[in-house]
């Protein structure tokens, strides 16, 4: 009998701590599939961030470093500069990357660090209990914006990918979504490209994956996927923002 669906080799055989319905599991799987299919696991060094993805190092079957909050791109820079043959990737949420670590992300991108950044944007702080993030949408209720985000007080949600788009050091940049099968298949291609770009030494690569948080959004998993599609995608348009010619298009 032929196994048609198995756990990717790059994922360790371990149950995750993520809440039911959370899309982290799918995002992990996409990264692991890319490592498997490009045969990069033996060279891989991941950098875990702070937030719900803090235990990422338990779920990937490769070397890992745990970074301080927001500092993953700086840590990844140190690893990559010391070991240029390593395939170095960070896995960061929106609080980590777009708030406390905005400078590190921006400058790693600006320097064209040959690293891959997996950026999970679910518009909220998950682990600390649902506080407002820089990416929280206008009017979105969180524990620290109980009446909904008031942009006159806290500014507008930060579009990190658009901020990075203009930097010459950025070789690959895409925003994808994980809310349905079609979009997950697109996301898979982008994640693969982001690793190929590093393998070819072309520069900084980042994939922003729009994600959910049923627990802190106060929704069922199904409702959260619908909310993502109807509210996040209009503000955070999906698609490839930057692609180097040298990267192959996998097609469908």
């Amino acid at each position: 009998m032929k196994a048609v669906f198995t756990r990717p080799q790059a994922l360790s055989d371990q149950a995750t701590h993520y809440c039911p319905g959370c899309l982290h599991g799918i995002a992990h799987r996409l990264v692991a599939e890319a490592l498997d299919e490009l045969d990069l696991t033996e060279r891989a060094v991941g950098v875990a961030s702070v937030g719900c993805s803090v235990f990422t190092y338990n779920y990937f079957d490769c070397d890992f470093q745990q970074a301080a909050h927001g500092r993953a791109p700086a840590v990844a820079t140190g690893i990559k500069r010391a070991r240029p043959d390593s395939i170095v990737f960070t896995y960061q949420g929106d609080g980590d990357l777009a708030s406390i670590g905005a400078a590190e992300a921006m400058h790693a991108a600006s320097r064209g660090e040959k690293i891959t950044v997996i950026f999970i944007n679910n518009a909220i702080y998950g682990m600390t209990g649902g506080q407002m993030a820089p990416t929280t949408l206008e009017g979105q209720r969180t524990t620290t914006s109980p009446s909904g985000r008031d942009v006159s007080l806290t500014g507008h949600p930060l579009r990190m990918s658009e901020m990075l788009q203009g930097l010459p050091g950025v070789a690959y940049l895409a925003r994808v979504s994980c809310h349905d099968v079609k979009h997950i298949r697109q996301a898979k291609q982008s994640v693969q490209k982001a690793f190929e770009v590093q393998r070819e030494g072309l520069g900084f690569a980042m994939v922003e994956l729009l994600s959910n948080c049923p627990t802190n959004w106060g929704m069922t998993p199904g409702e959260s996927l619908k909310w993502l599609e109807e509210n996040m995608i209009p503000y955070y348009p999906i698609g490839e923002l930057k692609t180097p010619e040298a990267v192959t298009d996998h097609g469908e």
């Binding site: 470093q65 301080a68 840590v75 820079t77 140190g78 500069r81």
Partner: peptide, 26 residues
Amino acid sequence: GVYLQAESEVAAINMVYGAAGAGVRV
């Protein structure tokens, strides 16, 4: 070797962390 001017002291010490973790004298 590599000399790299970081964007801040905060970034610099975290680059040191990454390189030290990768096993080099830094």
